[in-house]
């Protein structure tokens, strides 16, 4: 059903002569041929559709990817937090070991004593201002100030040494930890012979190679 403007209908009602003409016009709806879809345009349409589909697909893919990355972000954030905590625990351990009392205790453990007077030279006059004194082996620092309360469980310490095994040895890595935890077997050398001999349990007498057994 086509809709005609009202004016036309009214006009059709008024004049009979015109009616036939009008009816004729109503009977014959104005037809018009659709423009031919040419091949080129068909290809164009297909490519537009394809483009749309591709865009849709791309948007979908990006969306899925972003959503998935979000899980990854959460995972990485947790990993980051864990590492931060681990780092914190290690830093704390270092800080406690660095405290003066702990250093003093470690020093005593490896057989160190309080220093005596240091010698001084006046470089401008090339004179000895004061002469050095040998430190006395009995001058062990006193131990009135308690070591800081270390809240970390023992397991944390074990974890550390395991992880530090891959780290550089010596003073920078696992070696440093080892040095702090255990007294080396008399690396004070020959000079400390008397002193280390006086220490109980030292069978090495200041050296690193055990003496031959002469029990028989």
């Amino acid at each position: 059903m086509s809709v005609l403007p009202m004016e036309e209908l009214r006009a059709a009602g008024r004049a009979d002569g015109q009616r036939a003409q009008g009816r004729q016009a109503q009977d014959r709806p104005s037809l018009e041929a659709l423009p031919k879809v040419r091949r080129r345009q068909r290809g164009m349409l297909a490519s537009v559709l394809l483009l749309l589909l591709t865009a849709l697909g791309a948007v979908l893919a990006v969306n899925i990817h972003v959503a998935n990355s979000q899980y990854q972000v959460v995972q990485l954030t947790n990993q980051h937090r864990d590492l931060v905590h681990q780092n914190q625990a290690l830093a704390q351990q270092v800080q406690f070991l660095e405290s003066p009392q702990s250093l003093s205790n470690s020093a005593v453990a490896v057989g160190m004593v309080m220093p005596a007077t240091a010698g001084t030279f006046d470089l401008s006059s090339a004179e000895i201002v004061s002469s050095a004194e040998a430190a006395s082996s009995s001058e062990v620092p006193s131990n009135f100030v308690g070591a800081p309360g270390y809240s970390q469980p023992e397991t944390a310490a074990a974890d550390v040494s395991q992880q530090a095994s891959g780290a550089p040895s010596g003073l920078l890595g696992a070696g440093a930890l080892h040095t702090l935890r255990q007294a080396p077997a008399g690396e004070n050398g020959s000079g400390g012979g008397e002193e280390s001999a006086s220490r109980p349990g030292s069978a090495l007498h200041g050296g690193t190679i055990p003496a031959p057994d002469v029990t028989d």
Partner: peptide, 8 residues
């Protein structure tokens, strides 16, 4: 709070 130096 942690106090690495303890009672120092």
């Amino acid at each position: 709070r942690t106090y690495p130096a303890g009672s120092v």
